[in-house]
């Protein structure tokens, strides 16, 4: 009973102890704090990019092509003489936007399908989960490439592609929880009080699954930023002059051998650090949100 009673407590939020427990655990987790701090700074930088960026991300200095970092261009300039630091700041907007919206869409779709499958069972369950299995059969990147190939390149299609391959992951996660939760006493109680199916699913089951969904959501953002950058890198993302991190890597890779290390190192590092931060945050959330762990 202990393992299933905690979600019940979490669902009935007014009791302050789980939240306090969570904050206490989270604040003790140094890695989590570091990652959160970094992501907060990144979000601020992305929002304030037009004011923070020293240059127009599209403006070229034709006399300074691929020039190394110096006082005027902190991260140097790229193959067309554009300021890399400014482009990374603007790129953060795109990457965060793509990461959040695509995983958000994927999560909404996946959670709903997972709830329906887990709650109803039977044919509906089979239909949804076999569909998810089909999507699972493709490696995520391959599926995203196929979707973009059909829809055509561009930022919005890229978001859709990443969202679609996130759906089955969330669906499977939520279905497993819904399956075990729907037989718990509190759900049975609500049902016997005459709660409708939608009330049962959305008021009683959904909140109980949220902890793991949030953990997964955070980790998934890293994956989706990486996939989006990968798609841009192979030319399936937004137009080539858009300061997307994957785009920046693609246009600079031929310069790497020519000794211009900075053109690929900075966008590469931006992707690396951001994905790492989301993954660390996800890990930390899993550790702190896990009801089985005792504070």
């Amino acid at each position: 009973m202990t393992s299933s009673s905690s979600p019940l407590v979490a669902a009935a939020a007014p009791l302050s102890s789980p939240w306090r427990q969570f904050t206490r655990r989270f604040l003790r987790h140094r890695m989590a704090l570091g990652a959160t701090l970094f992501l907060l700074i990144l979000c601020m930088a992305a929002i304030l990019a037009p004011w923070l960026a020293p240059y127009d991300p599209q403006a070229s200095d034709w006399m300074a092509l691929a020039s190394p970092p110096d006082a005027s261009h902190w991260f140097g300039t790229d193959d067309l003489g554009r300021d890399i630091f400014s482009r990374i700041l603007y790129g953060a907007r795109l990457s965060l936007w793509v990461g959040l919206t695509s995983v958000g869409l994927g999560a909404i779709g996946g959670v709903l399908l997972g709830l329906i499958a887990g709650f109803h069972g039977g044919r509906v369950d089979t239909l949804i989960m076999r569909g998810a299995d089909v999507l699972f059969a493709f490696p995520g990147m391959l599926l995203a490439i196929a979707i973009v190939a059909v829809l055509g390149p561009g930022l919005n299609n890229l978001i859709i592609a990443v969202a679609v391959f996130s759906v089955p992951v969330f669906a499977r996660l939520v279905r497993a929880q819904a399956l075990s939760l729907k037989t718990t006493t509190y759900v049975e109680a609500a049902r016997s009080l005459g709660a409708s199916t939608s009330t049962l699913m959305l008021r009683h089951l959904l909140p109980a699954t949220l902890a793991s969904v949030i953990v997964f959501f955070t980790m998934r953002i890293g994956v989706s930023i990486l996939t989006a950058a990968g798609l841009s890198f192979i030319g399936l993302g937004p137009e080539p002059d858009v300061p997307e991190w994957g785009n920046m890597l693609a246009s600079s890779r031929s310069l790497m051998m020519a000794g211009a290390w900075h053109v690929s190192v900075f966008p590469g590092a931006a992707i690396f650090v951001t994905v790492l931060a989301f993954n660390l945050l996800g890990d930390a959330l899993r550790d702190t949100l896990d009801p089985k762990l005792k504070g």
């Binding site: 070229s60 193959d79 067309l80 080539p240 002059d241 693609a250 246009s251 031929s254």
Partner: peptide
């Protein structure tokens, strides 16, 4: 074409 140097040229023209 989608070759790096051609895409680079295209960006110059666009600008």
């Amino acid at each position: 074409s989608n070759e790096t140097s051609d895409v680079r040229a295209a960006q110059i023209f666009k600008q």
